[in-house]
């Protein structure tokens, strides 16, 4: 009994610093931002209590809904782009030949680059005059497919999802490879003895074995996409004419460009609530899926 009491104390003390930091730097600002959301405040000077006006405005603001829609595009592109591609790559690149190692390195490379660098690289690729993409289309005699990739509000958001997906595949590849190498060899052997191979083995054995990791990956994906900011900020800044505005960039622009700290806070609060909802829904969906296997 004394041992477990001591252990409990030790756990408590060991956790205390990180819990304190978490409370101070994550939870407290969150509560502050909910609080500021009730005020009309320009960042300097007096603030004015305006009850729910900011929150009402958020729901009436067409740009907010557009930003949410754009965010959903990013979520969809990430969940249905990053996760499956990373999974397929992980299955293909399981062996450790030199070629596969090089490919793995290449896929992982964007992870170690700063988002600003990636943004600049893709900005040049999409450049209407000197961009390699339009050059390539010309060269392939597909000149009529040339677009102003980041300048046309109708397609700019989709153009932006490509670098976002490309950027983070490496992370999920790493997750899946770790999960695959953690599946016990006995299961493989058992499957072999039972005569399962190919697609059947993949769907009946391998995928269920790493389902937990896939679940985690999807949640990371959704959470990451909802707070996406850096690449879009670098490449378009939310423009043209709010065409690629995300919740985070819209919040940033409101807070730091036009100094509506209160309204920016209200947007963050609503974003937090939306993010929670998405995570909960995705959790529920994936849990049901698991039972089918």
């Amino acid at each position: 009994m004394p041992t477990s009491g001591r252990l409990r104390w030790f756990i408590f003390i060991g956790l205390a610093p990180s819990v304190a930091l978490f409370l101070l730097f994550v939870i407290a600002p969150m509560i502050w931002s909910v609080y500021y959301g009730f005020y009309d405040w320009s960042g300097i000077g007096d603030s004015r209590f305006i009850k729910l006006d900011n929150y009402k405005e958020v729901f009436d603001d067409p740009v907010f809904w557009k930003a949410l829609k754009n965010n959903l595009i990013v979520v969809a592109a990430s969940v249905f782009g990053q996760v499956p591609i990373a999974l397929i790559l992980a299955l293909v690149l399981r062996k450790t030949s030199l070629f596969q190692r090089i490919v793995r390195g290449a896929i992982f490379m964007p992870m170690v680059l700063s988002s600003v660098v990636i943004g600049m690289i893709w900005q040049y690729m999409y450049h209407p005059q000197v961009g390699i993409l339009n050059f390539a289309l010309d060269w392939l005699q597909l000149g009529n497919l040339k677009r102003q990739w980041l300048g046309d509000p109708d397609i700019a958001m989709y153009s932006l999802t490509v670098p976002i997906v490309w950027n983070y595949i490496g992370l999920y590849l790493l997750l899946f490879m770790a999960a695959l190498s953690n599946t016990p060899a006995e299961v493989d052997d058992a499957a072999k003895i039972d005569g399962a191979s190919g697609a059947r083995k993949l769907f009946a054995v391998t995928l269920p074995m790493i389902w937990g990791t896939i679940q985690v990956a999807v949640i990371l994906c959704i959470a990451g996409s909802l707070k996406a900011f850096d690449l879009v900020f670098v490449m378009t800044g939310g423009g043209p004419a709010h065409g690629t505005e995300l919740l985070a960039t819209y919040m940033y622009n409101n807070t730091f460009n036009i100094y509506r700290f209160g309204y920016g806070s209200a947007i963050s609060t609503v974003t937090i609530i939306i993010s929670f909802m998405f995570i909960i829904i995705s959790q529920l969906l994936l849990r049901r899926d698991q039972r089918q296997f």
Binding site: Q123, Y126, H127, P128, Q129, Q148, W149, L150, G151, G239, P240
Partner: peptide, 8 residues
């Protein structure tokens, strides 16, 4: 204005 004035 030239094409793509919004990307530069």
């Amino acid at each position: 204005f030239q094409d793509g004035f919004i990307s530069i």
